[in-house]
């Protein structure tokens, strides 16, 4: 079953975030809890963990893209 992973809202005033790095490539097997991509905020770099296990089917954003909160950035074929 496909599951989308969204840009999280890391702060109350956050409307969008810059996806600064992918930590997994398309086709990689990922486990829930593993860091999947990085978002830089004013304070720190957040390594966002996968919330499902499976295979990273599609990266929907490129490194450097600004993505709105709650917009899908990845599609995972869940186990």
């Amino acid at each position: 079953m496909e599951k989308k992973i969204n840009m999280p809202k890391l702060a109350p005033e956050m409307e969008s975030g810059v996806l600064c790095a992918w930590l997994k490539e398309e086709g990689d097997t990922i486990a829930a809890g593993e860091p999947l991509f990085e978002i830089e905020t004013n304070k720190v770099v957040n390594q966002v963990e996968a919330t499902v296990s499976g295979v990273l089917k599609k990266q929907l954003a490129e490194e450097g893209d600004t993505v709105c909160v709650d917009t899908a950035v990845a599609v995972v074929e869940a186990e």
């Binding site: 969204n6 999280p8 890391l10 809890g33 860091p35 990085e38 978002i39 830089e40 004013n42 304070k43 720190v44 770099v45 957040n46 390594q47 966002v48 963990e49 919330t51």
Partner: peptide, 18 residues
């Protein structure tokens, strides 16, 4: 924005936060 050093990386899990 000045580049963040390596030691300012943190983990974030949306389900746990929710």
């Amino acid at each position: 924005m000045e580049k963040k050093p390596e030691w300012l990386k943190v983990r974030y899990n949306q389900d746990a936060v929710n």
